[in-house]
């Protein structure tokens, strides 16, 4: 037994060694991520939800926006798996199509926020000086205002909130926190010797930012962006729930739950609001698991091999 394990051990080590060669730190992080069971579970769940939203037309025949006043607040039946809402729209169809809106808003708002935050933070952290001062004071002001109230105020002033507008409003109010993270990372990178080394070979600012700063700051950016996506889905749901978000008849999980503001629906039609509620919970949880997994994967100290 002893001799067998002794023989096996070096062989395994050698394959490990060959395997490990030529892996960039990013690839190593991804491998660490793949070994995180909770994060993979989150990824699988999220993929399923994304698939359901993409293939929604195949999963249901109903138009989620088509009202049918003859079929108001129906109990679940073979025709309507989750019943119908107060306007006679099919709840199951709304649940599926609603995921499209929630995910689109979560993802695009995150992407847009990251874009603004990255540019602002990069400029601020790289150039410093007066530009840095101006950008940081702007973030101070935006951060001093409560995010939800600010976004709600802007939306209240607008006549009709479209999805595109909603995304822009979220991005405009949410970028400062990401800009600060990027700036902080850039400030610490600026003092590193390899950046001086890049200057010494005559690299331009753009090259230093894109080839040296961003690859080294990508970890915190990805982690925060992922967690931000979860909070943006929650934010959209919350606003839609209180009627400040995407207006009816467009289905979103948030405005589906808002049906439950009616005490009758709350009490006698749990099938109308529990599924969207659970969907929000599961989606946010899945994304947060992924975010946590990424955080561990990008933190070299978490590498316990």
């Amino acid at each position: 037994m002893q001799s067998i394990s002794n023989n096996e051990q070096p062989a395994e080590d050698m394959t490990m060694d060959v395997d490990r060669k030529h892996r960039s730190p990013f690839q190593l992080s991804m491998r660490r991520f793949m070994r995180n069971k909770l994060a993979i579970a989150g990824l699988v769940v999220l993929t399923l939800i994304v698939c359901a939203s993409i293939f929604a037309p195949l999963l249901t025949d109903y138009d989620p926006e088509e009202a049918n006043l003859l079929m108001v607040e129906q109990k679940p039946s073979s025709d309507h798996i989750l019943g119908t809402d107060s306007s006679g729209r099919d709840n199951f169809a709304r649940l599926l199509y609603g995921s499209r809106i929630s995910l689109t808003i979560g993802f695009s708002a995150m992407l847009f926020t990251v874009l603004i935050g990255l540019i602002m933070g990069a400029v601020s952290g790289y150039y410093g000086g007066i530009i840095d001062n101006i950008i940081m004071r702007v973030t101070d002001i935006i951060l001093a205002l409560p995010f939800i109230v600010l976004a709600m105020t802007i939306m209240a002033l607008l006549e009709k909130v479209t999805i595109g507008l909603f995304i822009v409003i979220i991005a405009v109010t949410a970028w400062p926190s990401l800009a600060r993270i990027v700036r902080g990372t850039f400030l610490s990178l600026r003092e590193q010797e390899f950046v001086l080394g890049a200057r010494a070979i005559g690299a331009r600012d753009s090259r230093i930012i894109f080839r040296h700063f961003i690859p080294n700051a990508i970890g915190p950016i990805i982690v925060n962006a992922t967690l931000m996506m979860a909070s943006m889905i929650l934010f959209e749901s919350g606003l839609s729930f209180i009627g400040m978000g995407i207006p009816q008849p467009t289905p979103t999980w948030g405005n589906m739950i808002s049906e439950a503001q009616n005490i009758r629906v709350l009490r006698y039609h749990p099938e109308a609001w529990i599924p969207p509620g659970l969907s929000i919970l599961i989606t946010v949880l899945a994304i947060n698991f992924i975010g946590d997994g990424l955080r561990d994967a990008f933190d070299p100290k978490s590498d316990r091999r």
């Binding site: 960039s24 010797e193 001086l196 080394g197 070979i201 080839r211 690859p215």
Partner: peptide, 15 residues
């Protein structure tokens, strides 16, 4: 050109 002191800090670890 220049060769720096700390071989761990002077090379971009992502390249």
């Amino acid at each position: 050109q220049i060769v720096f002191q700390d071989p761990f800090a002077s090379l971009n670890s992502k390249m």
